[in-house]
């Protein structure tokens, strides 16, 4: 009986360990989806009827800007450790004040938007 109790306690402990790890995964997924939703909402609000958005993320190792297909995560990719890790190019002039991204400038090495005649950096 003592042995069963002992193993029961260990099993309970293992279940709690699993629950802890599972909860961490769940919380992370929730946070990511919430962030993506908020980001998407912001993007939709400023890009309706506008030219295609393009995004670049600064590669900390090489110092170069790499184009990414999806909006970068404002906190993980853009704000830490320095505030100029991300650049966004669009025809919408109000973008920097409504999104947490930094301005794209020629100095960042970002090329003009290929689909737009009056492409500019912001």
């Amino acid at each position: 009986m003592e042995k069963i109790k002992k193993y029961g306690k260990v099993l309970l402990g293992v279940a709690i360990l699993g629950a802890g790890a599972g909860m961490a995964h769940y919380a992370q997924a929730q946070k990511a989806s919430k962030l993506a939703y908020q980001n998407g909402e912001k993007l939709e609000a400023v890009t309706i009827g506008k030219a295609t958005m393009r995004y670049w993320v600064n590669d900390q190792a090489t110092g170069k800007y790499i184009e990414v297909t999806t909006p970068p995560n404002p906190i993980e990719n853009c704000q830490e450790p320095s505030p100029n890790d991300c650049v966004v190019q669009s025809e919408n002039a109000s973008l920097p004040s409504t999104l947490d991204y930094s301005q794209a400038t020629p100095a960042n090495g970002v090329q003009p938007h290929p689909d737009s005649d009056k492409a500019f950096y912001q």
């Binding site: 402990g13 709690i16 360990l17 629950a19 802890g20 790890a21 909860m23 961490a24 995964h25 919380a27 992370q28 993980e76």
Partner: peptide, 14 residues
């Protein structure tokens, strides 16, 4: 057990 596993795992993921 739960708290340390939760916070430790969350830190590993980030």
């Amino acid at each position: 057990v739960f708290m340390y596993m939760y916070t430790g795992w969350a830190k590993f993921m980030n």
